[in-house]
Amino acid sequence: MADTPVEYIKHHLQNLTYGKLEAGYERFDGTVVSETGWTFARTAQEASDMGFMAIHVDTLGWSIAMGVLFLGLFRFVATRVTTGVPGALQNLVEITVEFIENLVKDGFHARNPLIAPLALTIFVWILLMNVLKLIPVDYIPTIAHAMGLEYFKIVPTTDPNATFGMSIGVFLLIIFYSLKVKGVTGFAKELGMQPFNHWALIPVNLVLEILVLIVKPISLALRLFGNMYAGEVVFILIALLPLWAQWTLNVPWAIFHILVIPLQAFIFTMLTIVYLASAHEEH
């Protein structure tokens, strides 16, 4: 564990990175990498030097674990589903499904059997990933440290890779359905002839509309990431307080996050529905 507060914070905000180091790279302890290969980064500098060819093992592992938990739970219920009186677990699942179904019914008027399950996946998955944040910041990293892992950040949504990974998925769906519903010409017309319906203003329209399009996934990803990251930083700062004083700030902040966690999951879901609905609408 790090000594100074700054090191402590930096340490907690560093992902466990497994990436490629080029031959000749000088590592943190002065040794030189003899041949190009994949290894765990030991310092933040190493992690950033790995560049694009690296994986955040913790982010990916925990997000996949949460996804599997979500799908396992829901699949478990789906195979034992009864039309009679539902049990507690089925009730919980049905409440969630119905909640999403109503959201989609209100916000999405075209017919597309993909949208509702997509929204359900986004909502529950993000919710579960965000919930990890309520685990005290030192628990898992300490355990990981005992297992010999230098860094361990368990909340995937505090990693922009995770949030952008999802928002890019949504972005591709927006493009796909825009092209599918409106056709190439229809989509091009939407980009070129709005908001100013005049041929001379097509370049202006293009710039505006493409900007609007690009901003959608960025706003999705950054909103979720920003909220979760900031919350995480505050939790870490609170963890720097003396032990006896921590609860005075920790408890209210955690209670506040009980609100923030589902809210952020809801916003991501709602915006996805809205974006895809507009992709289905002919102008």
Binding site: M50, G51, M53, A54, I55, L60, N161, G165
Partner: peptide, 8 residues
């Protein structure tokens, strides 16, 4: 906070 293969 590096963008890398995790994204994909």
């Amino acid at each position: 906070m590096n963008i890398n293969l995790t994204l994909i």
